[in-house]
Nucleic acid binder design. Structure first.
Lengths: 227, 227
DNA sequence: GTCTATACACAGATAGAC
DNA sequence: GTCTATCTGTGTATAGAC
């Protein structure tokens, strides 16, 4: 599987994402017509990610958002009850999708070597397909409330543990050597995050997501097969 | 050399840093008495880093800063002429110190293997000694003006190139195998940055900076000596 | 050098017309 | 559903007393 295949298999269109958000927030969204909601949520999310990823969520004013979406301030408040709620919607949605897709794909492979490959690939593919969401999640995590931030950290820890478990499994299988698996998982996460945090750099250098995935896999592989 | 040695050799005390900042900004700082300036700059920087690293520079108000430093708003403006200038002072100082120390130490070693070790160590030691500065630099880079942001990117690129050059040199020496050195440099940077971006995580896990340095070196080493 | 008091712009949020 | 108009709090920055 490569990135093109992934995109065909998984529907991560803006519309599909908005539909999920609508389902999760039916109470707080005051507008009834579903098509209207989807259409405007799409505008709101695109604009929020665009502006926030340029100058920060805090620095984005609702007047900025109003201008970019073409909706009035009044209209915006039909879709969320506070600026903070808008932040939480984006954060929550990003986490939910990541978790679902990651688990779904890793489940399809059974042995450690294949799982490691898939885990690295899918994580990168996801963050490629939803780059603005991932960047936003990372950079704006500190603006979350105590409770929401705890969820974000738990989610981070969870995906890290996926890698840790794969290494442990591989050692039992005898295909990976003994290492500090938790440390390995930690630095791998750092490499995976770099992909969406420094997106512009990799674009400039013409590095595709598949190339990056292959590189990371080879890098980690050499550490885990070495001697 | 370990981190303890490094700290003894390099004076990165808050006072020493403030003295450098003063020298670089003598025109814009209206207060004449040098001791007063040092004392208050120290308060201002500590407070700015503390508050900004918790909730973001944009979200930190000058009233927050006034409360935390114990200085009035009026007094604060004797040390910088705008909030933006305060941001630039911090960014500029962090870059200047990094560059100087990094070059100084790498220069002491001549062969690639030793240089790689030193480059990784010193980068980590620096970011350990000045963690709030590094975290701040990374997270608030987007708030910089066009021109200042360009400098930040150039500085990033420069330190990345240091690693690239070491790998290339090592390949010529015959101690490192052929790899995509630029990609390697890129992911190493990601690992080094993780140290100060996720500082809390590593503290909780009782990972020392020396242990982290050793891990990264072994990780990269296995890739570059493999086969 | 540092303070208090204040100017003035603009932020988030809501009410009520259409 | 969406708009315009407006409320109220708070932001950066400065003036002038001490």
């Amino acid at each position: 599987m490569n990135y093109t295949d992934f995109k065909k298999m998984v529907n991560l269109s803006r519309q599909a994402i908005c539909r999920e958000v609508l389902a999760a927030n039916r109470e707080t969204i005051r507008v009834k017509n579903e098509n209207t909601v989807i259409k405007n949520l799409e505008k709101i999310f695109n604009a929020t990610l665009k502006i926030s990823n340029k100058k920060g969520f805090q620095a984005m004013t609702l007047r900025d958002l109003s201008r970019e979406t073409g909706l009035s301030m009044g209209a915006l408040y039909s879709y969320f009850s506070s600026k903070e709620e808008l932040l939480e919607m984006l954060q929550h949605q990003r986490r939910t999708i990541t978790l679902r897709i990651l688990e779904q794909y890793i489940e399809t492979e059974k042995d450690a070597t294949a799982r490691l490959r898939v885990a690295i690939q899918i994580h990168l593919y996801l963050s490629e397909a939803m780059q603005p969401w991932f960047y936003f999640s990372y950079m704006e995590a500190k603006n979350l409330t105590r409770k929401e931030r705890a969820k974000a950290i738990a989610s981070e820890r969870y995906t890290e543990k996926i890698f840790e478990d794969i290494f442990r499994q591989g050692q039992i299988e005898g295909v990976f050597v003994q290492r500090d698996h938790r440390m390995s998982a930690s630095v791998i996460k750092a490499m995976l995050q770099d992909w969406y945090l420094k997106r512009r750099k990799y674009t400039e250098r013409n590095i595709s997501v598949d190339h990056y995935a292959q590189f990371v896999l080879a890098f980690v592989g050499s550490y885990y097969h070495h001697k």
